[in-house]
Structures are given as structure tokens and as C-alpha cells.
Amino acid sequence: MTPLIEALNVRAIDAYEREDTTVLPGLRSLGAVLALHGIAENGGLVGGGIENIFFSERMQSVDDAIAGYRWLGLVDVAALVARARDEYLRFRPTGREELSDEDAVLWDQLDSAFFEIATLDRLEAAVAARLHEIAPETMPS
């Protein structure tokens, strides 16, 4: 993790999961992003992120992460996550279907694309640019 992301990670995810209205909406949006991002970094976007969330019956959190990426200005990442969600629901509507060879290739391509464009450095830069709307008390003086 980068220093800024590490400093905000637990707090943001907690605010998002508890729907804490006492914090800035930006912190909750970041929490939605970080919740998905962390899972995707460990297990891939499709299998780690989308599939795990699908089986935990929290698909709204994927939509929240997509909105969060957009809000942060990472529209390419938001579009990729939206595509991964849609493709997953197409090729595994119940989560148990066998993948065709073409879909297995697509799964890998989506994961690879995520690792290429959703880097922590890009995420940190986007968070730093909106820090005044996320956690202004952490801004350097």
C-alpha cells in the first residue's frame, strides 16, 4: 500500500460498510473503492473481486465502487470494473457455470487490464487530488 492509502484504508472501508453519515461522503466513496480494490489486488478483478462479492450477495458494493472510481476521476478503471461485472453476470449468472474457453481468456484479460490501469500509484494520486473532500484533516499544512 502507499502511505496515503494505508492511512485511510481501514477508516474509509469502515465508514463505507457502516454507512457512517457523520463522515464526508468522499470518505465513504473511497471506502467502496478500497474494499473492492483490495480484494481485486489479491485475487484478480473477476475472481477475487466480482466473484467474491457475488457470492456474498453484495453486488451493490461493486456499483458503489464503480461510482467511487468515477468520482475519483479514474473513469477507465470504473468502466473496466463495470465491464467485468457485466461479463461475470453473463458467463456465470448463478456463479456455478463452467466457463467457455473464450470466457476464460476474457476473464484473464480483464484481470490483466485491472492490474495495468488500477495501480496504487494512480489511486493515491486521485485520492490526493480529492483529499479535501475525503479527509481534509489529513492534508499537509
Rank of each mutant, 00 (worst) to 15 (best):
L4C: 07
E6F: 11
L8V: 01
N9R: 02
N9V: 01
V10D: 07
R11V: 06
R11F: 05
D14E: 07
D14A: 09
A15P: 00
A15V: 08
Y16V: 02
Y16M: 01
E17V: 07
R18L: 12
E19L: 05
T21E: 15
T21C: 10
T21L: 15
V23L: 05
L24Q: 10
L24Y: 08
L24R: 11
P25K: 06
G26W: 03
S29Q: 14
S29G: 12
L30Q: 04
H37V: 08
H37A: 05
I39L: 14
A40K: 03
N42F: 13
G43P: 02
G44L: 04
L45R: 04
L45V: 11
V46R: 02
G47W: 05
G47V: 02
G47H: 04
G49H: 04
G49T: 00
I50C: 06
N52W: 12
N52K: 06
I53L: 11
E57M: 13
E57S: 15
V62F: 06
V62G: 02
V62L: 12
D63W: 03
D64Y: 00
D64S: 10
A65W: 00
A65E: 00
A65K: 01
A65Y: 01
G68I: 00
R70M: 05
R70S: 12
W71D: 09
L72H: 02
G73L: 08
G73C: 07
G73M: 06
L74N: 00
V75K: 09
D76Y: 05
D76E: 11
A79C: 02
A79R: 02
A79P: 00
V81A: 03
A84H: 01
A84C: 02
A84N: 02
A84Y: 01
E87G: 01
E87Y: 04
Y88Q: 03
R92L: 14
P93K: 04
P93H: 03
P93D: 10
G95K: 09
R96S: 12
R96E: 13
L99V: 08
L99C: 08
A104R: 09
A104C: 10
A104H: 08
V105F: 14
D108Y: 03
D108A: 13
L110W: 06
A113Q: 13
F114W: 11
F114M: 09
E116D: 14
E116M: 13
T119E: 10
L120N: 15
L120M: 15
D121T: 07
E124W: 09
A125S: 14
A126I: 08
V127P: 15
A129N: 07
A129L: 09
R130T: 07
R130N: 15
L131S: 09
H132Q: 07
E133T: 00
E133L: 14
P136E: 04
P140T: 09
S141D: 14
S141P: 15
